[in-house]
């Protein structure tokens, strides 16, 4: 495992920890899109079904369990926790996320590495992950006051994607895999979605003002 891959996994892990910390410490999920969290839960379950069939490393297995359980815990808090659920911005989190699920599924049926149940699930999870942040970005744009932790959550998620691209470039030159166009294209789309956010995050940091995305 190269350093880029490891840094990617760590920033991904940090993003989840930041979000759990925000929800736990403030007992509030304001500014957090439940739809994005539900999409991530679907992504992780679809992709990590190999948890019991393909062992790669203890590191991989532990991370898979962490990502599935943490996303489930966040969704559970936002739906069931007596205090947290009341802070959910239901009226602003209106993105039609079912459309993303359906579109990703159709794409996975057409573009996959093999027409098997597992490969279709894997491709589906790659496509869905690429667009799962959209409800969160729309919600950020609608909320006038983005709190620091929510901003950092999205920043870490974006960093995770950027590090994974560097990881693929590194692997391309050291191992030479050229046929992996599904994660490459989906990964580039996914990272591009953060470009706008990175720009405004940088501006708010540079000018030392609160993050606000233009409508």
């Amino acid at each position: 495992m190269n350093a880029f891959r490891f840094l990617g996994d760590m920033t991904h892990l940090f993003s989840v920890l930041v979000l759990l910390l925000k929800i736990y410490a403030t007992k509030s999920c304001s500014g957090v899109s439940r739809k994005t969290q539900e999409l991530y839960m679907v992504v992780f379950v679809a992709r990590y079904m190999d948890l019991f069939t393909d062992y790669i490393s203890l590191y991989n297995s532990v991370m898979k369990v962490v990502f599935i359980t943490s996303s489930a815990a966040i969704v559970w808090c936002m739906r069931r926790h007596p205090q947290v659920r009341r802070t959910y911005d239901r009226d602003q989190d209106t993105f039609r996320h079912v459309v993303l699920v359906a579109a990703s599924f159709v794409l996975a049926l057409i573009f996959n590495e093999r027409f098997t149940f597992r490969e279709i699930c894997w491709a589906f999870s790659i496509y869905l992950e690429a667009v799962a942040i959209l409800p969160q970005l729309v919600l950020l744009q609608r909320s006038r006051n983005v709190d620091n932790l929510t901003g950092q959550y999205v920043l870490f998620l974006g960093a995770y994607r950027a590090f994974y691209i560097l990881n693929w470039i590194y692997r391309y030159f050291t191992e030479g895999h050229t046929s992996r166009w599904i994660p490459w294209i989906a990964g580039l789309v996914q990272t591009a979605l953060y470009a706008d956010f990175f720009y405004y995050y940088f501006l708010s940091w540079k000018n030392n003002v609160k993050l606000e995305l233009p409508a």
Binding site: R5, H12, D50, I56, N60, K64, F67, W122, H177, P183
Partner: peptide, 10 residues
Amino acid sequence: SSSEPVKDEL
């Protein structure tokens, strides 16, 4: 194995 290069990622 080299035929499964990316699925060792998360």
